[in-house]
Each structure stands twice: as C-alpha cells, then as structure tokens.
C-alpha cells in the first residue's frame, strides 16, 4: 500500500478583514480534500485568486486552516515539532529565493543545521553532495547569489530543499520566472531527483505544460474549490469539468 505523505481532509481557510459593516470574508479554500503519496507529484493549477497559493501555505504549515485536518505521515500536523527538515519548499522568484548576504553553501546548509544542529559551515560534505546532485559545480558553494544566473539560483534553492532529505516538497511556481530554455533544465532536475529520493511533491503552477510534465495527478482549483482531480493523462485527454477544458484551450 502506498503511504500518503500529506493529507488534507476537508480543509477550509477563510480570510476575514474589516470591522462591523465593512467586514468581509473570503473563502480561499473551501472544503479541500486531497492527498499526496510518496514518490508522487500532485499538480495544482488554477488562476491567481483560485486559492492554490493558500493551499500551498497550509500544506507547508505556514498557515493554520480555519477548519479541517492536515495530516503529515498520518499524524495531525504540528509545525516545528517533529517535521523540521521533513517538509521543504521551492518558491517562484529566483532573485528572492536566497539570502544575498550568505554564501550559497551556507544557504544550502541552513535547513540541515536547523534540523540537526551545528553551524552553517559544519555541513560541508552534505552541501557538496547536494551541489553534485543538482548539477552545480562544487565551487559554487563559495559564491554569493548575485554571482549566479536565475537558473543556477533555482538549482541552489532545490539543493537547499533537498539537503534534509524531506518527505514532502512544495514547488510554488518554481520555474515560472525562468527563461524557457532554463525552465526545461530545472523541470528535468525535479523529475530526476524525485525518482532518486522518492519525495512527495505539490507542484503549484499556472503553466499547464510544466504541470503536465512533472505531475502524476492534477487538481484544478477555482474560487477555493477543487473542481477536478484526475490522473495527468486522463486529465489532458478528457477533462471533465468545463473550467478544465477552458484552461486547456488556453494552453
């Protein structure tokens, strides 16, 4: 039986703002149920405002849902206790993904030093191994982010996410800001590393082409709800929901 790494069970997230009469509510996640087994990537597509980014933050434990349960490895989710290093993320903007004041090596080492202790410089071997894995030269460890290209920085962000050998990674528009020719390199990297390490992944993107390439299953979100969740091939061959069809037409 395949183990579910992450499960969202009837999760809803409501944003409230304003006071009295001006009080407004926005349902960013409306009764979302989904699961991601080990070694599998779930693609999450939808337009901005569909709730996919909120779903990502809830899955990462950055945001507490209004109702529902989030389970990680079968246990209710409690960030900071027991999950350190087991959940990681790669974000969109390669310019903002790394601290400009730290060397690349220190950035990559940070999650490991948080999970296992030790200074940033005490995990050199692990850092060099990671650089090998993401296809960067070892000398990159000494460099600062501004000396790297966008694609290289995104590889570093992948290395940082993988150094603790996490069970679950969220890729939030992780290739959207890259040039087309570099995007393909990073997408291949993600696929290869998943095959090697067997992590579960949530791949959030508005780019249906990229999502199709890396995902095993695809969930389409709209206005906070999942309108369709299907195996990738089935989804692209015969989308069931009207909205999915419209999205695919725009591809």
């Amino acid at each position: 039986m395949i183990e579910n790494v992450l499960e969202l069970d009837q999760v809803s997230t409501v944003f409230r703002s304003g006071w009295g009469r001006g009080r407004r509510e926005l349902t960013a996640m409306d009764d979302i149920t989904l699961s991601v087994p080990a070694g599998e990537t779930l693609g999450l597509v939808g337009e901005s405002g569909s709730g996919k980014t909120t779903t990502g933050s809830v899955a990462l434990g950055l945001r507490r849902p209004t109702s529902g349960t989030v389970r990680f490895l079968g246990r209710p989710f409690d960030r900071r206790r027991g999950t350190a290093g087991q959940i990681q993320a790669v974000f969109q903007n390669p310019n903002w993904s790394l601290n400009p004041r730290l060397t690349v090596g220190a950035s990559i080492a940070e999650p490991l030093s948080a999970a296992e202790g030790g200074s940033l410089s005490s995990h050199e071997d692990a850092v060099l191994t990671m650089l090998d894995e993401v296809g960067l030269h070892r000398s990159v460890a000494e460099r600062h982010p501004h000396e790297l290209s966008g694609g290289q920085r995104q590889r570093v962000a992948v290395a940082r996410a993988l150094i603790t050998r996490p069970r679950f990674i969220v890729f939030d528009e992780a290739v959207s800001a890259l040039d087309v020719s570099v995007q393909a390199q990073v997408l291949n990297l993600i696929k290869d590393l998943q095959a090697q390490n067997g992590f579960a992944a949530l791949f959030i993107s508005h780019d249906l082409g990229a999502v199709r390439y890396v995902s095993h299953r695809i969930a389409v979100m709209r206005l906070g709800e999942i309108v369709e969740l299907a195996e990738t091939e089935r989804f692209y061959d015969a989308p069931e929901h009207d909205y999915s069809r419209r999205l695919l037409e725009g591809m």
């Binding site: 950055l62 290093g85 993320a89 790394l98 601290n99 999650p111 948080a114 962000a157 996410a161």
Partner: peptide, 13 residues
C-alpha cells in the same frame, strides 16, 4: 522574501 519563508519552513528559530 522567499528565503525567509524557506527558513521558517526548515524550522530555523
């Protein structure tokens, strides 16, 4: 910036 979110997720104090 994203590197701060990444640190929070990694459990950095």
């Amino acid at each position: 910036r994203d590197f701060v979110a990444a640190a929070v997720i990694s459990g950095v104090s």
